[in-house]
Design a protein around this nucleic acid. Sequence first.
RNA 1: GGGCGUAUAGUGUAGUUGGAUAUCACUUCGGCCUUCUAAGCCGAAAACCCGGGUUCGAAUCCUGGUACGCCCGCCA
Length: 569
Amino acid sequence: MNILGEIIEPLLESALTDLGVKGDFWKRALGSSRERDQGDMSLPCFPFAKQLAMNPNDIAANLAQALFGKIDVEAAGGYLNFKADPHWLAQKVMAGIPSTGNKSVLIEHTSANPNGPFHVGRARNAILGDTMVRLHRLHGNQVRAEYYVDDMGKQVAVLAWALEHLSREDVDKILDGRGQVHPRWVGKHDHEIVRWYQAAQALRKEGDDAIEEEIGRLVHASENGDDSVLQRFEQAYQPVLDGMLETLERLGIEFDTFTKESKFVVDGSVSSLMETLEALEIHGTAENGAHFLDLGLRGLKGKTEFFYRRGDGSSLYATRDIAYHIWKWQQSDILINILGEDHKLQAKQVGMTLEELGHKVPDVMFYAFIKLPEGKMSTRRGNVVFMDDLLEEAQAHAAQVVKQLRPNYHSGKVASIAEAVGVSAVRFNIIKVNPDKGFTFKWEEALSFEGESAPFVMYSHTRACSIAAKIGRPVGEYEIGDIPDAMYQLMRVMACNNDRLGLAVNEHKPHLFANQMLDLATAYNSFYRDCHVLNDGEVNEFYYAVSQRAKHMLNQGMSALGLIPLESM
RNA sequence: GGGCGUAUAGUGUAGUUGGAUAUCACUUCGGCCUUCUAAGCCGAAAACCCGGGUUCGAAUCCUGGUACGCCCGCCA
């Protein structure tokens, strides 16, 4: 609880100095209390024992005495426990505790190759990235959400070649029943066009040299910035990308800017970068004329040669990525990239090279993969859950639940609630877990609407909305009155809201804020149980004010996680 | 083989960077709807991968194992 810590620290500082403690190492030890009845913040006194040659119990007692009257403090078992005064806390919370962000941030996320529909695994990136965008904005930062479009290279070349050479009949014949478009997605370009890509990959596997040569020519042309080829590529991938963005839009995910990879080839920055890299002392050349940096000389372990230029003189993906980053540093103070764990080495190489060139290293948030109970997700093997299908199922399941719980709702209302619940539940399931951890996608968990889920949080919010709707007017004059325990607990959770937000933002851990929303909803539910705003038609104005404050915080917090707050559900 | 990451009740997870009685949920068991929406609330049972070490104190740090994931392309 930072607002309390700000008061405690100076008091402790002088008390500790008086006792003879040197240094401020204790500031890190001052943390939240473990148990509720211990208070809000605690300081273990064990570290002082050696310096003062006293036992921790006595130190705590001494400090408690020195601070007596200045703050609510108690010594217990070698700990110093501080408690926020309920009235003071209520005042702070009701006045609003400001957020502290004021930086400009560029968050690059998703940046998936435009060659097919999102599956749940690939969508983890988009959901985490968009959540970071929203959290930063709530925190007060200026954010630009950016999609780096891979518009050149082999994958797009294969797609373009396929679209130019294969008819629908060819594709059907090659795939021979495999990869049928689900009737639901007929006409959605990412689902349709990916079949051309798959068909081309199948053909390539058969080893036709002519095809390989032609694709090679296209790749080469694109890497040299051939404008007509890049245009053909764009014609091929743009409809696919549009289809993919449609899926993201349903999830509430939008971008401010799209930057094409080819930009850095066309504008010459890649070739000038390669010249700069050639002059570095860690530079090396392979037998066939390919260029690399020996990052082992800078401490990289494992494979130390980082190739940035092929023998034929063309650039590689990572090379362009470095040019892209140099450009990004001109756009913003802070760079954050959302990347799958498979990009760790690549990101390390890019980061070290940027450092070698005197640039800053971007922040990277890595996430582990989502797998299915049957194993790794793979479109090719058909072991895959498409995000479009998940959203559709979530919506359908939610509609079923709403119909059962609220039989009097008309179908339009059911549909709109179900859509909001479905989308929110899908997002929340991915956000609530630590990105470091891989997880196994299970339908029953993705479609669970109780416990630690989006609907749980949404439900608390609708309770608050329901009260406000019944009262039908804004909060009037009120005085902070008695504070029952349930309200006090709610105040404590609300007081820490921005602390948790700051932590989630600065440590790139959105799950911390997802948990905060669960805590807030839980605390609100207890408040709702114990503190009735309406009693026989009479409004307790203070309680109403608290309810509205919590409602607002829930609303803001949910939106920052991409959950859709509803008035009723 | 080398590098990086992960390991917490039956299941899934948190753990504020070394502090008190390890969080929350699902499942199981038992309770609460004539009171602001029961998608809720209250209660019970149940866990730190294994071995050493550092420390007043270790889920957390070091070390050696084990298991799983990712990477080790002049691919993207």
